[in-house]
Design a protein around this nucleic acid. Structure first.
Length: 872
RNA sequence: GCUGGCGUGGCGAAACUGGUAAACGCAGCGGACUUAAAAUCCGCCGUCUUGCGACUUACGGGUUCAAGUCCCGUCGCCAGCACCA
């Protein structure tokens, strides 16, 4: 009688319920076992779970289930990154309250996640828009404010005049707001900032020790922090050319060695000196206005011509009081890097050279390649930026640029201008402070009050939380909090007079910068329970997309330090291990008329090796396009529910982790999913058909006879799969499991009443091992198989089996034998045979004697247990 | 432009510190079972060659007894940053 097919639709919910009833995945804070905290980046509740989410969470789940089986107290929580723009957009478009929209989505997505059979601790779930959560975030803000980690300053922002809000740089497309399409303006607003730059050096240094992070991510963070070592030089202004009250120009440079090649100074359009100079100079003012208009769009930056305007101001060269240089306002100088002013050395910098050639400024080569002739070495239209020898530089001539750097620094440090040294060594960073003010409703309110008499007054902690009002309207653009009839009007906590609430809310990146800490004590009154936080943190394995390589991960690293300095926990680095997983991609289909078609609207026909896509509705052929990240616009999506409906969660989990390495993109194909499902059924048959023959048989490894091969295969797989999961090499672990099933299938099919008891014991043990091996990947099938084998407990609660070291090594091994580096045959020999014995045996081999033809080999190289190479 | 990474069968890939290249899966081909199909099972499956065998890890060199792996050069693809002084 044929075995009945495994039915995931009936089985999966049953086991999910069994796990939930036993509360198997709820972690306790006080537990003597070693802890393991595995976390996947929590989702934004956009509406539905995406197949990409499920791959991410499945990876974490495999680790969580494996570590639990290895005896760890595992924390594997889930929550929702729930504040943000899409909820407000939905509110504007569909007249639904952001709160309602968000919580509805969360409910839907929670159910979807539960269908995946993830071993999550749902008792710790929260959403960042829960009052309970943002209340604690406001407490953190106040603590950071008190500690001096928060400042308020004027800064330039992209302002969308139609939506009346600030836009992030990514939201400005070709100079226009991404939503409204309105021309974006540069505005100066007073905004709240976290002083992440206080930790620039520490955030950089600490990366060195983070060896469980991908090198790529560490590098990206290093570049983002952008440390450079240079010299701050104060150039005296020539009297009479400078505006009132200005006597010097501060310039930051990493190349003080090229100071004798300087031929002009350039300052940013919004440099204070430029503003002053423009006061009596309408033409200059117009030029500055021009610069300001530009610079919103990336495209404009790329193509923008380097332009400058001579201010008429002149500076004196620090080493020669008779040498003066012009000061230009230039459109390529950035106000917020260094001092917003540079000295231009045309021979050593391509951009300076272009500028000098355009405005007819001198070009003096100061560094030449080693061995070149200083009399003839010239720079025309290509700057020389490499290492070399100093020339035309007076006392620096003949030095290396490095020596010259130090010489210039040493000399200028000793000269004073005003009452300060003319130059100071200075370390500079690209990293800017983190602006967190958003003129939006759906975010965490910044808990401060503005009072005309007292200024900025923090909301007393006893008055927290500052709750978002529910009665808001989105009929008009701008921030609804601003328009609310009562919300912003409060009394000053200090003087009791009328005052105004801050109506800006926090950047949603703030919400996700500490949620991992909140999970360790999600119901604590304070932001954390320091004891719990210190016990659970750091997160041992954090898994998420590479798109967060910089901002989210850097902000979280900053926040952890800030929380340490305000007494909420006691560590600097939140994530010990980081893994960035690839995306799930799918082919795209496009009809002749240009319409994108969903996979479900297309039928694939295979004729030999050619594939053709046909639109089901019309029967017309369809173009098969490239692999792309699944997106609504290209319609190349598959929904997790459809997969679960058709094949079950285990099949989806298995398929997403097979074949492709986890850090790489995986292509979702119907064939692949069907193949994964075939394997689910194959395992089920193997177990279900063997079980009747193995009732009452004790599992026991065999060392001799038929059973020995079975036991060896099982124990080798057991060792390898464990190692692969530890390395997150899920695709390799899966290949091992396939191999084990292939190895067991023959012996299992041969089971009958006559099978030797040792063989049966070995097979029973091997099947039990197999079930434990695939359990982290296909947990429901594992329970079903375990029950079929007579198990009465849950695999999810069982320990990982231990392999027998004697069974994972072979006593006899097959050594490949090469002659002159080409494989000519093998030698089967005892594993522990010594070098001499191997050499003797090899020379006895027929094909070796034939090849040597009586001569003795020049050399025999024996690599123990690996290979033999005979050099004839 | 700068910085980093990657190029292995029809496809996804494996190969530990240099030691049998292509494990495992998908697709394909052939066969068994079946009235038939599905499902399942067995076999083949880098290229050339009837065979022995030769060749093969983007391309060209080099180091080595031995190179997918190390070094030099070339080409291609991907990612991050992008006027950073």
């Amino acid at each position: 009688m044929a075995t009945e097919r495994y039915n995931p639709r009936a089985s999966e919910p049953r086991w999910q319920q069994a796990w939930a009833e036993k509360k198997l995945f709820e972690a306790q804070n006080d537990d003597p076992r070693p802890k393991y905290y595995v976390l996947e980046m929590f989702p934004y509740p956009s509406g539905r779970i995406h197949i990409g989410h499920t791959r991410n969470y499945t990876m974490g789940d495999v680790v969580a289930r494996y570590k639990r089986a290895k005896g760890f107290n595992v924390l594997h929580p889930m929550g929702w990154d729930a504040f943000g723009m899409p909820a407000e957009n939905a509110a504007m478009q569909n007249k639904v309250h952001p709160k309602e929209w968000t919580y509805q989505n969360i409910a839907t997505m929670r159910e979807q996640l539960k269908m995946m059979g993830l071993s999550l601790d749902w008792s710790r779930e929260f959403a960042t828009c829960d009052v309970d959560y943002y209340h604690r975030q406001q407490m953190l803000f106040l603590d950071m404010l008190e500690k001096g980690l928060v400042t308020r300053k004027v800064s330039k922002v992209n302002w969308d005049p139609e939506d009346m809000t600030v836009l992030a740089n990514e939201q400005v497309i070709d100079g226009r707001g991404w939503r409204s399409g309105a021309l974006v303006e540069q505005r100066e607003l007073t905004q709240w900032f976290f002083k992440i730059t206080d930790f620039s050096q520490d955030l950089l240094d600490s990366l060195d020790g983070m060896d469980e992070w991908p090198e790529k991510v560490r590098l990206m963070q290093r570049n983002w922090i952008g440390r450079s070592e240079g010299l701050l030089i104060r150039w005296p202004l020539v009297e009479g050319t400078a505006p009132e009250g200005e006597s010097e120009l501060e310039v930051y440079t990493t190349r003080p060695d090229t100071i004798f090649g300087a031929s002009f100074m350039a300052i940013a359009a919004d440099h204070p000196l430029a503003k002053k100079a423009a006061e009596g100079n309408a033409e200059l003012a117009a030029f500055i206005e021009d610069c300001r208009r530009m610079g919103t769009s990336v495209a404009a930056l790329e193509t923008a011509e380097k332009k400058g305007f001579d201010t008429g101001i002149r500076v004196v060269h620090p080493f020669d009081e008779n040498w003066t240089l012009p000061v230009y306002v230039a459109n390529f100088v950035l106000m917020d890097y260094g001092t917003g002013a540079i000295f231009g050395c045309p021979s050593g910098d391509q951009r300076d050279l272009d500028f000098a050639n355009k405005y007819g400024l001198p070009v003096v080569p100061v560094v030449m390649p080693e061995g070149a002739d200083p009399k003839t070495f010239q720079i025309v239209d290509e700057a020389y930026v490499d290492d070399g020898v100093m020339i035309n530089s007076r006392f620096l001539d003949g030095m290396s640029p490095k020596q010259a750097f130090d010489e210039v620094a040493n000399r200028l440090e000793k000269v004073t201008i005003g009452n300060r040294p003319m130059a100071e060594r200075k370390v500079n960073f690209r990293l800017r402070d983190w602006g967190i003010s958003r003129q939006r409703y759906w975010g965490c309110p910044i808990p401060v009050i503005h009072c005309d008499a007292c200024g900025v007054v923090p909301v007393p902690k006893s008055d927290l939380p500052v709750k978002l009002p529910d009665d808001i309207d989105f009929d008009k653009p701008g921030n609804p909090l601003d328009r609310h009839p009562t919300w912003r009007h409060v009394k000053c906590p200090k003087c009791g007079e009328d005052a105004r609430r801050e109506t800006d809310t926090m950047d949603t990146f703030v919400d996700s910068s500490w949620y991992f800490a909140r999970f360790t004590a999600p119901h604590a009154d304070q932001p954390t329970d320091p004891k719990a936080a210190n016990e659970w943190l750091p997160v041992d394995q954090y898994i998420g997309g590479i798109e967060h390589a910089i901002l989210h991960l850097l902000y979280s690293r900053f926040f952890t330090r800030a929380m340490r300095d305000t007494g909420h926990l006691d560590l600097a680095e939140p994530f010990k291990g980081l893994f960035t997983q690839g995306m799930v991609v799918h082919e795209t289909y496009r009809a002749r008329d240009g319409r994108w078609l969903a996979p479900s609207e297309v039928r694939i026909e295979q004729a030999g090796e050619t594939r053709q896509a046909i639109e089901i509705a019309t029967g017309e052929p369809v173009g098969i396009g490239s692999l792309e990240k699944m997106s609504k616009s290209k319609k190349n999506t598959v929904s997790p529910e459809d997969i679960i409906d058709g094949y079950g969660a285990d099949t989806a989990r298995w398929f997403m982790l097979s074949d492709s390495p986890p850090e790489r993109d995986v292509e979702w194909t119907d064939e692949g999913a069907a193949g994964a499902h075939r394997f689910v059924q194959r395992i089920w048959r193997l177990v279900a058909e063997s079980a009747p023959h193995l009732g009452g048989v004790a599992p026991k490894a065999a060392t001799t006879g038929e059973g020995a091969a079975i036991s060896k295969a099982a124990h080798k797989a057991l060792k390898a799969v464990g190692e692969d999961i530890e390395k997150l090499a899920f695709n390799r672990a899966i290949a091992r499991i396939y191999e084990l099933v292939n190895a067991l299938q023959g012996p299992a099919a041969g089971l009958s009443g006559a099978t030797a008891p040792e063989t049966r014991g070995a097979l029973r043990e091997a099947l039990e091992i197999l079930i434990h091996l695939f359990a982290p990947f296909m947990p429901h099938l594992a329970e079903e198989a375990w029950a079929a084998m007579g198990g009465t407990d849950l695999v999810a609660a069982r320990p990982w089996p231990a392999f027998d070291p004697d069974l994972v090594v072979d006593n006899e091994i097959v050594l490949p034998v090469q002659i002159n580096g080409k494989k000519r045959g093998d030698l089967t020999i005892a594993r522990d045979a010594d070098q001499a014995a191997v050499e003797r045996a090899v020379l006895e081999l027929d094909f070796v004697r034939k090849a040597l033809n009586g001569a003795s080999p020049r050399k025999v190289i024996v690599i123990p247990q690996r290979i033999v190479n005979i050099v004839a």
